[in-house]
């Protein structure tokens, strides 16, 4: 007997047959077994990865003045932490009458990426913060030439400056710096093909003692 396959909906007799066949096939699958097995695998995997407790957080490393730190595809070596009234080559303008001073951190930064990067980027040198002082640093070159682009593998002497009030910091105070770390990505969508750094975290902390440079006589720069 030829069974005609047409586009019309199956007749009631055929529908019952189809449903019955589906039900019969479904009943052959050992559903309780599969659910139990799946549950067992989930529990074993959870136990294997340490259970539901929080993972231990790795402590943030500390570095000292003069020690090299690597993060965000940069190597940074802080050389000095000074408090001065004279801004030197830094592009910050303390108001003497308000008693403002400049916190100047001199460091050497080397870009270890294969292309030039801006030191003022949030994940780079501008990501360094001082605990207790608001804002990002103003970055200048020690030799005063301006320009905050770091060429690959070329060490750059930079000065990071913040304006501080005279009652905020004194000679001999300890300051804590945080140095940034981030992950490099290559954009695939809007930033297609471009390099960018994201997931900025604290890579290391540095505690240093502030040295106050007393104001020199008129006309001389520190």
């Amino acid at each position: 007997m030829l069974i005609l396959m047409t586009a019309a909906p199956p007749s009631p007799v055929q529908e019952r047959t189809l449903l019955t066949r589906v039900r019969r096939m479904a009943s052959l699958i050992p559903t309780p077994w599969l659910i139990t097995a799946g549950g067992a695998i989930l529990l074993a995997a959870t136990a294997g990865f340490g259970g539901l407790a929080d993972a231990a957080v790795a402590p943030v490393p500390t570095v000292t003045v003069g020690e090299q730190y690597s993060g965000s595809d940069l190597t940074l070596t802080v050389q000095s932490v000074e408090l001065r009234t004279d801004r030197g080559n830094a592009l910050v303008f303390p108001k003497e009458e308000k008693g403002e001073k400049v916190l100047a951190i001199t460091l050497e930064a080397t870009n270890t990426f294969h292309a030039p990067r801006s030191a003022s980027a949030a994940e780079a040198v501008a990501g360094i913060r001082v605990k207790g002082i608001q804002g990002e640093p103003t970055i200048s070159r020690v030799d005063g030439g301006g320009g905050a682009v770091l060429q690959p593998d070329v060490p750059a002497q930079l000065v990071l400056a913040w304006i501080v009030r005279s009652d905020e910091l004194h000679d001999g105070d300890a300051v804590e710096l945080t140095l940034p770390d981030s992950t490099h990505f290559v954009g695939t969508n809007v930033l297609k093909g471009q390099d960018y750094w994201s997931d900025i975290v604290v890579g290391a902390t540095l505690t240093a003692t502030v040295t106050e440079i007393p104001p020199q006589g008129d006309g001389s720069t520190s």
Partner: peptide, 11 residues
């Protein structure tokens, strides 16, 4: 090689 440098904006 595999490094790219840009002309300096200093000076």
């Amino acid at each position: 090689g595999d490094r790219t440098f840009r002309a300096t904006e200093r000076g």
